[in-house]
C-alpha cells in the first residue's frame, strides 16, 4: 500500500508525549515513526538497551509506550529479545496465547548499545534467526553519559573522550560500517534511513523490516542537538545534509541485493554537513584543511563502493 502521511498521522500514537528526551531529540521522532510502522492490530514488545531513550521513556512510573516494554541492561537488548521471541513461539504452541495474534518484537538501542557494547548480543541474535527487528538510533556517540566517542562516531568528530586540541583533530578512526556487518550475517532485510521529507523512506523501510520474517535491521542516523552542536530546530537540515553529502547513504539490502533508495541530485561536499555542527568546528581552522579533504576522500570511496554494490 502506498505511503500516505495523512493516514499515518491519523493512527493512534504509540509513543507518547511526556517522555524526558531532550527538546529536539531525534530519538523521539524515531520511536513515533517506528511504532507507526506496526500495523494497528499487531501487538508490539519493545526491548530497549540502556541509554538516553530508556531513562527517558520509562522513568518509574511513567512509560511513553503503549505497547509492552522491557529494559534489562545496556549490552543485552538483543538477547533479551531472543527470550521474548522464544516465548512467542512456545506460548503459541502451548496455547498460552492466541496463535492468531501477531506479535512484533522490536529492539531499539543507540549506537553505543548497538555498534559497541551490544554488538555481541546483536550478532548472536541475528545468527540465531529470531523474528525481530532491530532499530539503531545512531547518534554517533554515547550521549546518555555525555558525548563520549563510540565506534559510530565519524572520524574528526570531537567527542568528550576525543576532544579537539593542539595535538588532536578529534576522533582518529572512521565509523564502523555496522549496516554492512549486519548484512554479512545473511539477514533478509537491512536498511539505512534517517529523518527527512515526509518520513516515507523511514516508514517504508521500517514496515518492510518489521514484516519480513526473521531478524531484520534498520540503522537510523539520528541527530543529537547537544552532542553534535547545532540548534535543535535544524534537525531536518542536518539529516538532509547527511544524505546529500552521501555521508549517510540511504539504501536497503533485501536478501543480499543492494538497492539505493536515495541518490542526491547533486552530491554535496562534506563541508555542507560538517560546517553545521560544532563537533567539527576545529576542522575549519587554519592548518586543519586536510581533515576535510580526508573526510571527503573517505566518503567518496564508501559511496563508490556502495554504488558498485547497488548495480
Amino acid at each position: 500500500m502506498a505511503y500516505n502521511l495523512k493516514e499515518e498521522m491519523n493512527k493512534e500514537e504509540r509513543f507518547n508525549s511526556g517522555h524526558r528526551l531532550c527538546a529536539g531529540c531525534g530519538a523521539g521522532i524515531v520511536c513515533r515513526a517506528m511504532m507507526r510502522a506496526v500495523d494497528e492490530n499487531d501487538k508490539a514488545v519493545i526491548c530497549n538497551a540502556t541509554g538516553c531513550l530508556e531513562v527517558s521513556s520509562f522513568q518509574y512510573p511513567y512509560t511513553a509506550w503503549n505497547d509492552s516494554y522491557i529494559h534489562t541492561a545496556f549490552e543485552n537488548a538483543s538477547s533479551t529479545a531472543s527470550g521474548v521471541c522464544a516465548a512467542v513461539e512456545v506460548m503459541k504452541r502451548k496455547g498460552k496465547i492466541d496463535p492468531d495474534q501477531n506479535y512484533k518484537i522490536l529492539v531499539i538501542g543507540g549506537d553505543g548499545g548497538t555498534y559497541d557494547i551490544g554488538f555481541q548480543s546483536l550478532s548472536g541474535a541475528l545468527e540465531r534467526g529470531h523474528d525481530f527487528t532491530y532499530f539503531c538510533y545512531d547518534n554517533n556517540a554515547y550521549m546518555n553519559t555525555g558525548t563520549q566517542r563510540s565506534s559510530a562516531t565519524p572520524r574528526f568528530a570531537a567527542a568528550t573522550t576525543t576532544p579537539a586540541g593542539a595535538d588532536s583533530v578529534g576522533k582518529k578512526q572512521d565509523q564502523k560500517d555496522l549496516t554492512q556487518i549486519v548484512v554479512a550475517h545473511g539477514v533478509h532485510y537491512a536498511a539505512q534511513t534517517t529523518l527527512f521529507g515526509n518520513m516515507k523512506d523511514f516508514h517504508e523501510k521500517a514496515h518492510r523490516a518489521i514484516y519480513t520474517q526473521g531478524p531484520t535491521f534498520v540503522n537510523v542516523l539520528t541527530p543529537c542537538p547537544r552532542g553534535w552542536g547545532y540548534p535543535a530546530e535544524d534537525l531536518i537540515d542536518i539529516c538532509k545534509a547527511a544524505i546529500d553529502t552521501c555521508i549517510w547513504p540511504l539504501y536497503e539490502v533485501v536478501d543480499g541485493e543492494y538497492r539505493l533508495t536515495y541518490e542526491p541530485k547533486k552530491k554535496l561536499p562534506v563541508e555542507e554537513f560538517m560546517s553545521k555542527q560544532s563537533r567539527f568546528a576545529h576542522c575549519f581552522k587554519k592548518g586543519n584543511e586536510w581533515t576535510i579533504e580526508a573526510a571527503q576522500q573517505y566518503v567518496d570511496k564508501k559511496w563508490e563502493d556502495l554504488l558498485a554494490k547497488c548495480k
Binding site: A73, E75, S79, T80, S82, G83, V84, M91, S121
Partner: peptide
C-alpha cells in the same frame, strides 16, 4: 545463545513475556 550474559538475558525476556 552466545554467552552466559545472553543466556540469562534471554531468560529474563522469556520470563517477563510469561514463560
Amino acid at each position: 545463545v552466545e554467552s552466559e550474559h545472553s543466556s540469562l538475558s534471554a531468560c529474563l525476556g522469556a520470563e517477563a513475556a510469561g514463560c
